[in-house]
Design a protein around this nucleic acid. Sequence first.
DNA 1: TTGTAAGCGTTATCAA
DNA 2: TTGATAACGCTTACAA
Lengths: 337, 337
Amino acid sequence: MVVTKMTIKDIAKKAEVSTASVSRVINNAPNVSEELRKKVMSLIDEVGYKPNSIGKQLRTSKSEKILVVLPTLSNPFYATIIKGIEEECSELNYGVLIAVINLNNELERKYIELLTTKQVDGIISFFSTLAPDEINKMAEAFPYVQCCEPTENTSTSSVSINNKKAAYDAVSYLTSCGHKRIGMISGYYFKTSEREREAGFKEALEKADIAFSEELIVKSDYDYEGGQKACKKLFDLENPPTAIFAVSDTIAIGAMKYLSTINKIVGKDVDIVGFDNATVSKMSSPTVSTVSQPRLELGQTAVSLLMDKIHNSSSINKSVVLPHKLIFRESTGIKFK
Amino acid sequence: MVVTKMTIKDIAKKAEVSTASVSRVINNAPNVSEELRKKVMSLIDEVGYKPNSIGKQLRTSKSEKILVVLPTLSNPFYATIIKGIEEECSELNYGVLIAVINLNNELERKYIELLTTKQVDGIISFFSTLAPDEINKMAEAFPYVQCCEPTENTSTSSVSINNKKAAYDAVSYLTSCGHKRIGMISGYYFKTSEREREAGFKEALEKADIAFSEELIVKSDYDYEGGQKACKKLFDLENPPTAIFAVSDTIAIGAMKYLSTINKIVGKDVDIVGFDNATVSKMSSPTVSTVSQPRLELGQTAVSLLMDKIHNSSSINKSVVLPHKLIFRESTGIKFK
DNA sequence: TTGTAAGCGTTATCAA
DNA sequence: TTGATAACGCTTACAA
């Protein structure tokens, strides 16, 4: 961590060459003599000179950094995806910066300005508060890809699982176990995935010839308390469900907590499936059956989509769908222990 | 989200004024006529001009952004602290960027370059892989503060709780309950806090006239599996403990899991105290008694320390210690349910 | 109050 | 292969 205020000019002066030559050495330009290269490089090493990247950015309009826009930091779900992003970017020598917008539209715009003012070369967004046509317009002019949760009616490159199919699979498993009355705990936050998962839920019921009624879908916050409350609503029904499909593992664990207070045994009296294969889903007791998303690959794919945009501005929009996986644990019957 | 490639020159030309005047308007300089201001502002609004902040940064060496350096994203402990940072920065009109270094020294250096090259005005670091004198040297030249986990033998501004006292309090509570044989599950990751907590642990034993032996401190990864393994080690001892102090709630929950497999009832046969008051500590069953850190205030304080450095380069280094709090839950006896 | 022009640290064009 | 110099977009003395 040598700290110098040296500029390319200082190096040039010391080496008795032009700044242009120093620049060529730094950037591994083809046409520099071995002699010059050695002289300049040894000097650079000696004084610990680091090119000022603001100057470079101003000149080249490239930052070799991308920005990851997150709705919140409190959901550990993102950690692994971002690890995938980091790994991929690290190989490409891109830096990864993260911004948290907390559902704040103004804040989101502020961070997006990092893109429009060329401070980052691209954005991977996990959630946007912008209107669809704003997103479309921006994505036309700048490298912007959506990950996991593309805003409805937008056309940018994106990567996610098939949320409808994932819900369909989870609920179909429940019907195949003989459940005739299944509740769903959904949310009112991530609009797209929730709508799709609700659609998958309904389709699975239909397929199993089970009547659907609105009371079976309860909306919840994405937390432990939310899961408890939502579950109570379901079990305050005249005809309560015998199984629950929840859109997050934390919600599922909250639901399990409520069930324990009314002496229902999860995995026996009531089967539960969560979503995301969060760390906590293996820590609770009983452990939670869940739908797993390929997080590392989600991140890696997002990066390659973004790089495509960065290096080829006319690149066409691609929507990549990655496979999900059902994971069976104790919350859906002891046979899966 | 209007997207223009306009520069200050274009605006100046359109408005038939100098670029200096436009600059003054943008920056709310005192000496501009109302007439000029109106003319320029309306034009700016009309065409949606946004000043290019790279140009501005190059000229002013200020970015109005800070960087938060995190060891990992998978620990939700940071989420609330960062919320405190965001809130504070938002008021000051500073942007907050986050970088994750995953214990990778090279990566950390890369992100620190954002500071040394003036792309961010300061850094709040939650963990560093750098050598103490490197940190000191950097912190002398640039605004850099450490939060929660200052590297030992460094002298930068920092904010944290008193980890030794926190451990002392937690373990003293355990001894006050009558425990004579207490185990500690520590880690080998965050060197500073672990060492301090171990010191607090020993001191509490000493104070209660309980002999200490090395076998009572077991090292663990900061996860569920680590907690299980560490707990097994403790209970494979000839003389196993009747209480455990763990340096994280996740470890504590892992320990509880192991205890359930050997038919020990937590809160009755064995008392357990965790650390951090993580979300999961309220979700497990039994719930986990823990040491709570004032996360929001930790973040806010870090920001004010940093702003002090940013706006007053000769500002003296301050070490702020914030109060911790013991939280009693089911894992230390049902009387605290 | 406004304009002129230098300069922040680079890279890239052109000429040598 | 190397050097001189303009340019990137902005702010800020200094002059008017």
